[in-house]
């Protein structure tokens, strides 16, 4: 049997909103470690990896490892029915082909349950080794979202360059070009407003903006985003989920022919 209970049910709603447009179907793996998922978009250009550690839940029981194949659009439909303050319980019995979501209002005066049919999904799990990155940028997630949105009104791709000067986001399109430079800024009152750039090597990579804008849908999950770049690796855009884990997006670069 698998059962988890999360008092902050809105967190699961936010997770689904962040990934449902990128991935159609995914296997959610439940183990003693926690609730995790790895899935690629249909073109194999982007990958999302989610981890919610068991310690982060108010209740977590997993008698044996299970993998639940779920259509994300359908799971998002169900989670939309949960109130923002609702307590969410997710349950699956061994050997059944469905998962149950239960929503309880904080005052316990409304209790809903939804049963979602599971599906068989051929999961293509990529092995992603730990890597040393040439540059790691930490910045306010809302700022990153704003930059991606602004640049996509000019062009389709973004060049992210990290130098001693800072991190530069550039694009070009039919109407012209755009460059946005963010400098390291640690002298802010609130740590969530800081921009911190760790650079071992200068790096410059090109990415499709439509994927970056899709990743930015995770902005409500974390005040800061971490962007890890290496010249010979996909970029990692990570949103930490407070006390629980993370949602990481991997995006393969574009190269000049």
């Amino acid at each position: 049997m698998f059962e988890l209970r999360l008092e902050q049910g809105s967190l699961l709603k936010k997770v689904m909103e962040a990934i449902k447009d990128l991935v159609n179907d995914a296997n959610f793996d439940c183990s003693a470690t926690g609730f995790s998922m790895q899935a690629m978009d249909s073109s194999h250009v982007a990958l999302v990896a989610l981890l919610l550690r068991s310690e982060g839940f108010e209740h977590y029981r997993c008698d044996r490892n299970i993998s639940m194949g779920i259509n994300l659009a359908n799971m998002a439909k169900i989670l939309k029915c949960a109130g923002n303050d609702d307590i969410v319980t997710v349950k699956a019995d061994d050997g059944t082909d469905s998962v149950t979501f239960m929503f309880e209002s904080p005052t316990q005066d409304k209790i809903s349950d939804f049963e979602l049919k599971l599906m068989d999904i051929d999961s293509e799990h990529l092995g992603i080794p730990e890597a040393e990155y040439d540059a790691i940028v930490r910045m306010p997630s809302a700022e990153f979202a704003r930059i991606c949105k602004d640049l996509s009104s000019i062009g389709d791709t973004v060049v992210i360059s990290v130098t001693k000067e800072g991190v530069k986001f550039s694009t070009r399109g039919d109407i012209g070009t755009a460059n946005i430079v963010c400098r390291q800024n640690t002298s802010v009152d609130k740590p969530e407003e800081a921009t911190i750039i760790e650079m071992k090597e200068m790096v410059s990579l090109t990415f499709a903006l439509r994927y970056m804008n899709s990743f930015a849908k995770a902005t409500p999950l974390a005040s800061q985003v971490t962007i890890s770049l290496s010249s010979d690796l996909p970029v990692v855009v990570e949103y930490k989920i407070a006390e629980m884990g993370y949602i990481r997006f991997y995006l393969a670069p574009k190269i000049e022919e």
């Binding site: 690629m40 073109s43 194999h44 250009v45 982007a46 990958l47 293509e124 799990h125 990529l126 092995g127 992603i128 791709t157 090109t206 499709a208 010979d232 690796l233 996909p234 991997y250 393969a252 670069p253 574009k254 190269i255 000049e256 022919e257």
Partner: peptide, 14 residues
Amino acid sequence: HETQLRLEAFYSFN
């Protein structure tokens, strides 16, 4: 012209 790489160019399947 830019070419979009796929993730398999960097990572292998488990």
